[in-house]
Amino acid sequence: MKIAGHRVPVTVYIGGFIVLVTLIVILFAPWVAPYPQTKIVGGVWDLPDAHDWLGTDSIGRDMLSRLIYGGRTSVTIALVATFFTMLIGVGLGFLAASTNKLVDSILSRIVDVLLAMPILIFALMVFAVLGTSIPIMIATISTLESTRVFRLARAVAMNITVLDYVQVARLRGEGVGWVIFREILPNALPPLIAEFGLRFCFTFLFIASLSFLGLGIQPPAADWGSMVHDNAQAISFGGFAPLFPAAAIALVTIGVNLIVDWLLSIHALPAGAGAEV
């Protein structure tokens, strides 16, 4: 099969399958989950059996049901954070590329400083002052991570702004808004979609790590990262409980990564766009 003239390798089908199944399961959680998420169905950290397929958690709730409901929180929050990351990053990146040199220099210098440090360290700093809550976490992550998107968006837009039709639009007297939305955006979409996938993977893992550290999503809301945190002690008693949510995180990330890898291979990113950590 081909999509838009590109051959689709088998890895993309695997990735797509993982993503689709995850979405369906968490969307229809109440119908799919064998038990309500708060119901206590067994002892503490029961091993998997025919009754509870993945065993029970730290207070005897069914692990599989908790996983299905927890996925809702994990995926939704990561999606929202990624959305804002892209919004801020792409917006400022395009602004830097399409307005004057001064705006560009100021934005670029600020981003350089933020890029010089791992996101985790800055994020911990903010949490120490403001405490941890879901809105603060989303705001912090999307602000910090948008600096990574900024570089890509700026680089892509820079390549487009020098093209004739953008110059023509400018000479016609169109404003910055027109240039950004009508001229640059449509042509910058393909690499930005791949970037969205990449950012989602990063955000998803990052939020999971924060929750694991006990600084992300706070109870009673449960996500996969905090489930690992809550069940970590099971390992000392010969159980596997924290492995299930951790594996769920890994599986979803692999699924999205398989698709993103393919997208990246079709639309090679401009040099210097992939700044990680």
Binding site: I235, A250, T253
Partner: peptide, 29 residues
């Protein structure tokens, strides 16, 4: 490399703990 990019650090840690500390008992957890 795909696996290690996608696996959170704590997942790798717990797999190693289960294998080398809980099951084999070679190293402390």
């Amino acid at each position: 490399s795909l696996a290690t990019i996608s696996f959170p650090e704590f997942f790798v840690s717990y797999i190693l703990i289960v294998v080398f500390a809980s099951q084999l008992g070679w190293l402390p957890s």
